[in-house]
Amino acid sequence: MSDETSLIRFGVIADPQYADADPWAELDRHYRESPRKLREAITVLNNEDLSFVVTLGDLIDRDAKSFGDILPVYDALRHESFLMPGNHDFSIAPDLLAKVHETLGMPAPWHHFARNGFRFVVIDGNEVSLFSAPEGHPRRALAQQMLDTLLAEGAINAKPWNAGISDEQFSWLKSVLEKAKADGEKVIVMGHYPLFPENDHNLWNAQKLIDLFEQAGNVTAYLNGHNHVGNLGRHGSTWYVNFKGMVDTKDENSFAVVEIFADRIEITGHGREESRSLPL
């Protein structure tokens, strides 16, 4: 880390994906190791001067009782904590689906907050999906329609484990970016699904958001998980940073501290997460 003072510093965790389940050897996912890794990460992050720590979705792999095991680990975190769901957080009983955001202590499925002159925006990429609402819900029909269209187009992200956002959420996001621009705020958008570069894990309507960010011109970075191997890209003035999944590998951890300076973003990676210096 430089001796230069950053504008803001915060911690990032992606995809702990805990379950009381045997490892998935083919994907090198070790579900029972995640609480230990999360405790280790929190010990490190507690020794840092941070504005907050964000977890970019998939706290669990399956089963609502997994929340009861992983969420108490966060009690040891001395920083403000922001959680959001990923697709696996909806791998629970249908009657509990509507309670996921509440379980994670979120003020709303999509929301925003200001810290140190930055506007942080949390989007809900699970909104239009085949898993976040029970059978028969209108959003399920919309999700099937969206997926069928992408399949017909041969889109590489036309996968049932991906999802999209509604026109309503898109309009909300557009208005938040416009207000931030009028107020002279730089914006960091955070979600579970990647948007760029093109990948089979990307949000179904990723291009719509990429175009919006380019038009707005004030989105410094978009941060996400979901694709456990990680990724990085830049489009227009926005950096797209895909953080690696904590659940992967038996022993190696993965988390990061992000610092934003006037001229760059510095990412200090721990474990499998890469350290990067991204010019602005």
Rank of each mutant, 00 (worst) to 15 (best):
H79W: 05
D167V: 15
S2E: 09
D15W: 01
E259N: 09
S237F: 01
V219C: 05
Y240F: 15
I267Y: 08
E168P: 05
A64C: 07
F67Q: 08
T5I: 15
N218H: 13
H192Y: 13
S166R: 02
H226W: 09
E4Q: 12
R29V: 01
W204Q: 05
Q145N: 11
R115H: 11
L71T: 06
P72S: 05
A206Y: 13
N231A: 13
H201N: 05
H201D: 00
F196W: 12
E198I: 14
S129C: 05
L280N: 10
L209G: 06
E274F: 10
D63F: 13
A158Q: 06
Q144Y: 07
E259W: 09
H79V: 00
F213I: 05
H88A: 01
D248R: 00
D248M: 00
G245E: 03
L232N: 05
S51V: 04
R139D: 10
S81I: 12
E266V: 14
P94M: 11
D22T: 10
S34A: 14
H201K: 01
G11Y: 00
G154P: 07
Q17I: 00
R29I: 02
A262C: 02
L27V: 07
F118V: 02
A98R: 15
H235A: 09
D124A: 03
Q207G: 03
A64G: 08
A180M: 07
Q169P: 04
D211I: 04
R78L: 05
E178D: 15
G269C: 10
A14Y: 01
S237P: 12
M246S: 02
F113K: 09
M1L: 07
V54L: 01
P107E: 08
E185V: 02
P109V: 00
P85E: 02
R272G: 01
L223D: 01
I13F: 00
R32A: 11
R62E: 09
Q169I: 04
E4T: 12
L77G: 04
A262F: 08
H235D: 11
G233C: 07
R234C: 11
S6T: 04
N231I: 02
E127Y: 04
I260N: 10
I92Q: 11
A158G: 08
M246K: 02
Q145K: 15
F170L: 13
K179D: 14
I92F: 13
R32E: 15
N87L: 07
G105N: 13
E266D: 12
E273A: 00
H112C: 11
S34K: 08
N205E: 07
A262H: 14
R115N: 03
T238K: 10
H101A: 02
S81M: 14
D69H: 12
I188T: 03
N199G: 12
I92A: 12
Q145D: 15
N227I: 00
N199F: 04
P85D: 04
N227V: 00
D95H: 15
H235E: 09
E102Y: 06
L147H: 10
N116G: 08
W239D: 05
V100Q: 06
L56G: 00
W110Q: 01
W172V: 07
G11F: 02
I188V: 15
R9I: 03
L97D: 11
T149P: 01
N218P: 10
G105M: 06
E168G: 08
F213T: 06
V122L: 10
F213Y: 14
H111C: 09
N231Y: 09
P138K: 10
P279F: 06
L177P: 07
R29N: 04
R32F: 13
D200M: 06
K159L: 07
Q207N: 10
N46E: 07
D95C: 14
D28E: 11
